[in-house]
Design a binder for these strands. Structure first.
Lengths: 252, 252
DNA sequence: ATCATAGTCGTCTGCCTGACGATAAACACC
DNA sequence: GGTGTTTATCGTCAGGCAGACGACTATGAT
């Protein structure tokens, strides 16, 4: 097929973000309220156009920083600053996914600790953390009795794919630590797994597993009682990124 | 950020294909020779522009059919026709990846059985199956003593990502059967694993594992001696797509 | 002082895997 | 027809790991 630079069909390319965190024992995602048509007033995933001189991961990091103030954490740099984990998720390009024009969206997945409060230009009403089940249930009712309209565009599918990626990835990688602050306890890490998977885990077997996996956790020497009860050892994420053998999700 | 439909930067969107098969005990990928600048005469992955009214997966299936005659196998349809497995891999959008213009490429991964001979408009010289190590080694020499120039664009990276995806995915899914004909023996399936992973597996433990995993293999009742030696039972791929527990790749 | 809460260490049992012996059924060759 | 070679298939055994669960420890609350 002969190549003609002027003949290619023009596309708009965007990045959409699935930003996940764990709050109050629930897996939550960042949602923003749309100010314009289409889907005006509906909740959507944060995102925006890729600039012409910008790499896809740069665009995703920029959008993440604009929406949350989080600094994207490059996976190739093991130094754990206060940044979030960011990785490409999948690309969505159905011709009818945006009624205005042909848009291809490269979705990214970000995992962040609980700390940050959402900010969207200072308008607290236009961005929020919402439990993923609330965002994904179609036609149900939200926490305040508000009608839970489905997410705009195909964002429900994107969110579902991102959640599934996160659920499976913490099985065989140390990525669950991305949901924790720099220093955390085994119990806090266990509550992350419980929230993401929606299950209850045995504290003793979990403790044996994570402390027995070399490179997963590094003790800092300190302890804390911020969860109540007996003081717990504080850990930092170790250098290992792949868990072998993996942490198995209980079946069904 | 106000939305202006005339203001978005225009991108070209393409699909590139990593088509893998197992031939002569080696994992091979489909490569096509470029007829135009840039990278004229170099080997590249097959691919092309996404049409304006076409979904990404449709475009990938169309390119796959054009290059190999293979019919894409929709993963949601368990009926195993003579089609290949096809899934989205990742999207590559470095601003400098194509010197001519801004191109975002949505790479797809296809797994096919050995049978098909490459065809690219009847020109046998412009398409071939090449062992992936040969395509990935930079500056080495190919089988015929031909200088093995690196693949065009960022296709070496795309191919490496596709190979790694295939290697890890056959661990926990039944996808290795996509490399086999409709009916196959346990030994043939084992040779697929050995070729993809580049290891040697114990035939006895492998046999126990795959025949003991419910839903993985369904005996057809027939036998064959096409591999020599004692007749082997013939199997078909079962309905199970996820292997639990997974098939573990030997370490190092 | 007592209780509730959370963390940590052990034990036991069953399952799975890796290593490897043994047997079975075809073909090639003499 | 024997003999060797090749591949398939079944069995055995020991070690590792996970699930179930008992026991003990160290804090704060009342």
């Amino acid at each position: 097929m002969p190549y003609d630079p002027s003949a290619f069909p023009p596309f708009a390319v965007t990045v959409d973000l699935v930003v996940l965190t764990v709050r109050r024992h629930a897996l939550c995602a960042l949602a923003v309220r749309r100010g314009e048509q289409p889907f005006q007033g509906r909740w959507a995933l944060p995102g925006g156009f890729v600039r012409i001189d910008e790499d896809l991961s740069q665009a995703a990091a920029r959008e993440l920083e604009e929406e949350t103030g989080l600094c994207a954490h490059d996976p190739s740099v093991p130094a754990q600053d206060n940044g979030a984990h960011l990785e490409q998720l999948a690309t969505y390009g159905d011709p009818k996914r945006d009624p205005r024009m042909r848009v291809v969206s490269v979705a990214h997945l970000a995992l962040a600790p609980d700390l940050p409060a959402p900010r969207a230009g200072g308008d607290a009403n236009s961005a929020r953390w919402a439990p993923v089940e609330e965002l994904l249930q179609q036609g149900g009712y939200g926490r305040d009795g508000e009608q839970a309209a489905p997410l705009a565009f195909d964002h429900a599918q994107i969110l579902a794919d991102g959640v599934e990626r996160a659920r499976s990835k913490i099985e065989y990688s140390s990525l669950a630590t991305a949901f924790c602050p720099t220093e955390f306890t085994v119990g806090e890490l266990r509550r992350v797994y419980e929230a993401v998977w929606g299950v209850v885990l045995d504290p003793r077997n979990f403790h044996r597993k994570v402390t027995g996996t070399p490179g997963f956790l590094v003790p800092t020497g300190g302890t804390t009682t911020r969860q109540g009860g007996r003081p717990a050892q504080l850990f930092r994420a170790g250098g290992a990124t792949l868990l072998n053998p993996p942490m198995l999700r209980p079946e069904v």
